[in-house]
């Protein structure tokens, strides 16, 4: 299936190759296949596909990955800017993602 791409060069994702031990956990949890194993370490090969969900950083045992996690939902950002609380399902919304079956 064709992969959807959002804006170019905006995401905060970074990897510290010196810390990475190539365990492959980031590749396993990334829903957008942003990483590939290059030699003995993981590297970011499809940066613009990153949706900043934060799964890789949280599951990296070496703490080699940095990303500012968040949900890319304009409505949640708007409510946050207007300082309206509780209108969404929290400070991050994106709860319309019910369409992701399961789990």
């Amino acid at each position: 299936m064709k992969k959807f791409k959002y804006l170019k060069n905006v995401v905060t994702l970074q990897i510290d190759q010196d810390k990475c031990n190539g365990c492959g956990m980031c590749m396993e949890v990334c829903p957008q296949q942003v990483f590939t194993l290059a030699g003995k370490t993981s590297s970011i090969t499809d940066r613009d596909a990153c949706m900043e969900c934060g799964a890789c950083a949280r599951n990296c045992p070496q703490q080699a990955i940095y990303v500012r996690p968040g949900v890319g939902c304009a409505y949640a950002v708007l409510m946050d800017k207007l300082n309206i609380k509780g209108k969404c399902c929290g400070d991050v919304c994106g709860c319309s993602l019910d369409n992701i079956p399961d789990h």
């Binding site: 596909a49 939902c73 304009a74 409505y75 708007l78 993602l97």
Partner: peptide
């Protein structure tokens, strides 16, 4: 359309913030 960002499986927070800064 902008509001649909919350329903997609691929939009990032940084991207949405950037998009909104000119679109809104």
């Amino acid at each position: 359309g902008m509001n649909f960002t919350g329903s997609t499986t691929y939009t990032s927070l940084s991207g949405v913030v950037k998009e909104m800064s000119f679109a809104l």
